[in-house]
């Protein structure tokens, strides 16, 4: 294992810590009839990206666009249909559970529903210690307990709570337990699957700041999945916009927010409320027509064309490739630089 953990954010310096190439996750949906082959539901369709050490990549998109599936596909919690997931030079795709266990200690996940992600029959001490029992079975009981107490302090829980059960905690505390469980092995990458969307706003800030503090002090890489653009903007260095399992745009945070190139990104950003009533009133909102098409029968060509304000005949024929549209800014649109109203 290379020691690539630096406290500074080493954006795009050197080789990426994780690189995903052409990742596809299809779920076979049975039609319920005999002799009719199941239709693939394309949850994630040909997604590629790189992640560097210490970097936080935000993943945004509407619900049902494959954000969570992407995170699980990277961690091999769902077996990808095709594509490569390369972690520090090692291919993860197609590894059995026995081989995958070597990488599990570096790759962790924080879940959306804090209470549901904790086993209600276990004390939180046992929950937080479970990764230790799997990866460091040689540790004695006392050592394990000390490590658990230490991590609990780090995430802002009182170590005295060690013998309590999950249902005795609030949502925010439960999410801290989830963070502690993910952090106890000192992983290098954490996938945060909408970690705050189930919490109320005042608690959201606490958890976000906790994750950000831990990320900075341990040089963690993050894949931060969320549908809340302001949160993603707060925590990420780079942002990837997904629509129906396809990447629409990947760019540095500032570049994406200041000059969104893709019509979908523009619509998303125009929907973010501005905490200034004057600006909010004068803001131009782009409202998208219609609903997210079914991923069972996605539109031909560009998947966004059915709701795109600038769709042209070409969009129905050809799928736009991801092209460079500036420094570290890639966009998948035929007409990103055309002036069409």
């Amino acid at each position: 294992m290379e020691a690539t953990t630096t406290s500074k954010n080493s954006n795009s310096n050197g080789a990426p810590i994780l690189s995903v190439r052409g990742l596809k996750v299809y779920f076979p949906i049975s039609s319920g009839k005999f002799f009719v082959p199941p239709i693939p539901l394309k949850a994630v369709d040909d997604v590629s990206f790189d992640l560097y050490s210490g970097e936080a990549l935000g993943v945004v998109g509407e619900s049902g666009c494959g954000k969570s599936t992407l995170g699980r596909g990277v961690l091999q919690l769902i077996e990808p249909t095709a594509g490569e997931v390369v972690w520090q030079g090692h291919h993860l795709e197609g590894l059995g559970p026995k081989q995958m266990i070597l990488y599990r200690r570096d790759l962790q996940i924080i879940f959306q529903d804090p209470l549901a992600s904790l086993n209600p029959r276990m004390t939180i001490g046992d929950i937080i210690a479970e990764p230790l029992t799997v990866h460091y079975p040689e540790l004695s009981k006392d050592e394990r307990k000390q490590r658990v107490a230490k991590i609990m302090e780090e995430v802002g829980l009182l170590p005295q709570m060690i013998n309590r059960y999950p249902h005795e905690f609030s949502g925010g505390q439960c999410q801290r337990i989830g963070v502690a469980r993910a952090m106890i092995l000192r992983p290098k990458l954490i996938v945060c699957d909408e970690p705050v969307s189930a919490l109320d706003v005042s608690i959201q800030a606490q958890i976000i700041n906790l994750i950000q503090d831990l990320q900075q002090s341990f040089g963690l890489s993050l894949i931060f999945i969320s549908h809340d653009l302001s949160i993603v903007r707060h925590i990420s260095h780079r942002i990837m916009v997904l629509y129906l399992g396809n990447v629409m745009e990947i760019a540095d945070k500032l570049s994406l927010y200041d000059e969104p190139k893709h019509p979908y990104t523009k619509a998303l950003i125009s929907a973010v409320p501005i905490p200034d009533p004057e600006q909010e009133k004068n803001k131009q909102r782009i409202v998208l027509e219609g609903d997210l098409p079914s991923p069972l029968s996605p539109p031909t060509g560009c998947v966004f064309r059915t709701r795109c304000p600038i769709a042209q005949p070409l969009c129905a024929k050809e799928k736009p490739p991801l092209v460079d549209a500036g420094a570290k800014h890639q966009v998948a649109c035929h007409f990103w630089d055309a002036d069409i109203r």
């Binding site: 699980r72 919690l77 599990r104 992600s117 209600p120 479970e130």
Partner: peptide, 10 residues
């Protein structure tokens, strides 16, 4: 989700 968490832990 806690079963998935267990899978993620290994």
């Amino acid at each position: 989700e806690f079963i998935e968490a267990a899978h993620a832990i290994g």
